[in-house]
Write a protein that binds this DNA or RNA. Structure first.
Lengths: 365, 365
DNA sequence: CGACTTTAGCAACGCTGTTGCGTTAATACC
DNA sequence: GGTATTAACGCAACAGCGTTGCTAAAGTCG
């Protein structure tokens, strides 16, 4: 970890702040980051130089010299996000502020192959690039939110559920070669929760995006970053058992949340089941935010939201201090694709993680 | 975040490494940390100066100049850990390597008050200090693993379960005043998982310590640090519902893991219930390690371990790559107290977290 | 117009890790 | 036994980060 880490870290800190507040100035940034105003001046100058920030006039205090005001230039950087579901490919164009500027959806062939996906992806991305006149430096890359299981660190799909042609496919590598752009791959729901986090800022520290879309999953955002687990296999929340002697699930267990939810007689009952699952999640993880989404949930969005809110009020014991904010995703069907795009931006302009020690080397003798 | 952050971070990195390998030398540290050998020399010199490391001879390579070898001085720093349960106070003395050097247990009065606990704590700590001749600089402080709910950041107990005299007690503050030492307070199971993490090193990235002790809880270690949630209320894993129409639990819900576990006809059935709960946790969080502990589990330790291992093999779908290591805690009944001690050491000698932005200030106008 | 307040910015500085290069202590070769 | 080779060490100069000290600028207030 060099000195450059400090520089990048502080730049990322300012960018993160600029995403969540309309305008910035030296004094407030210094207060929030703990840096001295002088250091903030240098950081702001560097960011203006890179085109990420721009001056936005001055604020005139009751007395004293006017303060220089800055704001983010959302259009200075872009990323394209893709959501690969079993039925369709959805593409969005997102800017540095996390705003979605374009969104397309194209159907995919049943049981599509990697090549079929790459063809569709390449044509969609090319169209988007030409339509919006994106050039290399502003376009940070392409993110893909994909059906798991997969290995996020290498971008390899281990074997997407119910897709036969996807055993150990190095998707990130293939897409990079095809598109000539940096590509990151992640599980759909994990990408989705990144979109929520990127847009909401630092108050969104521990949260889940609960998705119902031909299955139930929960993308997790814990301690201020995406939680993927030891094998990028976290978020299989739908396969937690809520009824020990319940109906057989496709996964082989009995009474998985997903199976019980699916067999509920009506949407209200289904919502109640899901709500209980959400309270389980809260008991285990103590989240501050629950965001709901997914193609099979949003049509009954308010019903689900109210069921979860009700369960949180009645099933979570005691505690006025145990506040949980329940909401529907503001990005609708674009969450996953938008989140994939924001993961690209996050990798480049988000808070860098300090180097952690690698596998300890065996003791020398 | 100053330059001092880098210094502390790299020192902590080396200490963390020194905990997990018997000996260190410049070259290997450089490789693991990514620093240049020259920088490592400076770090090692500082640590030797502080007494945390000591030279341990030389390694003679096949050819060339012998390499200087260093090792941790475990006895250079100490911390005392306390485990407050409903029945007893357990104290341990732990060194920098995470080794427990002394352990005592004293019963606590039924429904004890804060004052009663502080009396017992003060006398126990004083005894331990005099018996082991600990002085201020080596003794880093006292950690307390406590029944929740509580607020870890301020060390305030919000209202310990089934203890009537514990509403909004600033335990850390009171204990600091009483003992004249730094005090950190955390939930029992979260402290416990810290002990496991501190002893196992960096391969222990995503894990849970599942505890059965008059209730079921799971201390979580996610992404290399303790997961406490938005209100220090994570780990209430025992109150996740596994049987929607199950027996009424003390918490008011039906079919909580804890209630179903408790009503199991025999230990084997109880272990099977817990095992299913553990698989739920794995599905949701994708952990690499499950550690089992607690006064009501360890008497049937192997039974529980085998039940969990069996459930992991049979209920977790597919996947040779989805490896989970299941084990019993090597610290036995001392886990929580030892973990509390290690949280003190971790606060002082563990990896510091970079400053995160505070609550964004409202936009200036 | 001068005192005061608030913000901005130049310049020197301290401390971090890095780079360059010479030194040291061992083995291998002739 | 002398010389080359190897591997590790360490001094000294350096680059770049944020900090400190101080001066300047641009307003309001009396």
């Amino acid at each position: 970890m060099h000195l450059a880490f400090l520089r990048d870290y502080h730049e990322a800190l300012v960018i993160a702040l600029a995403r969540t507040v309309p305008t910035l100035e030296r004094g407030t940034v210094a207060e929030v980051t703990g840096l001295t105003p002088q250091a903030v001046s240098k950081v702001l100058a560097r960011l203006v130089d890179e085109g990420l920030l721009e001056p936005a006039g001055v604020r005139r205090p009751p007395r004293g010299k006017p303060a220089a005001v800055y704001r983010l230039v959302p259009g200075s950087r872009w990323a394209i996000g893709a959501h690969v579901s079993r039925r369709a490919l959805r593409l969005v164009l997102a800017d540095l502020a996390g705003t979605v500027h374009a969104s397309t959806a194209t159907p995919l062939p049943a049981d599509f192959t990697p090549d079929q996906l790459l063809d569709e992806l390449a044509s969609g991305v090319t169209t988007m690039i030409t339509e919006h006149r994106l050039a290399a430096p502003e376009l940070a890359g392409v993110g893909i939110g994909m059906i798991g299981p997969l290995d996020q660190s290498t971008g390899t799909v281990r074997g997407a559920h119910r897709l036969r042609h996807w055993r150990d496919v190095p998707l990130a590598e293939l897409a990079e070669a095809r598109l000539g752009l940096p590509v990151v791959v992640d599980k759909d729901v994990t990408a989705g929760v990144t979109a929520e986090a990127w847009r909401r800022g630092t108050t969104f520290r521990d949260a889940a995006l609960v998705v119902v879309d031909a299955g139930v999953g929960a993308g997790l955002w814990l301690g201020g970053s995406a939680h993927r687990g030891s094998h990028t296999n976290a978020s299989e929340f739908g396969h937690a058992v809520v009824q020990l002697d319940g109906p057989l699930c496709a996964c082989g267990r009995h009474g998985c949340l997903e199976a019980v939810h699916e067999q509920a007689p009506d949407p209200a009952a289904a919502a109640a089941v899901l709500a209980t699952g959400v309270v389980n999640l809260l008991q285990t993880l103590d989240l501050g935010h629950i965001v709901l989404g997914g193609a099979d949930l949003l049509p009954h969005g308010d019903l689900y939201r109210e069921a979860v809110e009700h369960a949180v009020r009645t099933q979570l014991p005691g505690a006025d201090w145990l506040t949980v904010e329940v909401s529907l995703t503001s990005l609708g069907p674009d969450v996953v694709a938008a989140g994939a795009a924001m993961q690209v931006l996050d990798a480049r302009y988000g808070l860098p993680a300090p180097t952690r020690p690698r596998e300890p080397v065996a003791a020398s003798r």
